[in-house]
């Protein structure tokens, strides 16, 4: 199944900005995060089709997954 994955800020470095990924059925948000070698400790919010989600959520064909780092400096 095809899922659109969008990365933001420093998560784009040596990865990509936006990509259609061909994933196995029942693949989770957390699997994609780990596959992309995004350290969980740097993870901010993750949106699935525009709604905040968790690593356990299961992806479906046509979904859009957006992954953001945590930004908190001032």
């Amino acid at each position: 199944m095809l899922v659109k994955v969008k990365l933001f800020a420093n998560f784009r470095k040596n990865r990509f900005k936006e990509k259609e990924m061909d994933l196995e059925d029942n693949c989770t948000v957390g699997w994609v995060i780990d596959y992309l070698k995004i350290p969980r400790k740097e993870l901010g919010v993750v949106f699935l089709n525009g709604l905040s989600t968790t690593p356990e959520a299961i992806l479906h064909a046509g979904d859009t997954l957006s992954i953001f780092p945590m930004v908190g400096g001032g």
């Binding site: 969980r40 400790k41 919010v45 905040s52 968790t54 945590m70 930004v71 908190g72 400096g73 001032g74």
Partner: peptide, 23 residues
């Protein structure tokens, strides 16, 4: 709370610093 609440509580500024023009 939705934006920050679900994952860890440390921002990327700790590893990426803070630049004058970004601020």
């Amino acid at each position: 709370h939705d934006w920050y609440g679900k994952f860890v509580q440390q921002g990327i500024e700790n590893v990426l610093g803070t630049l004058p023009f970004t601020a």
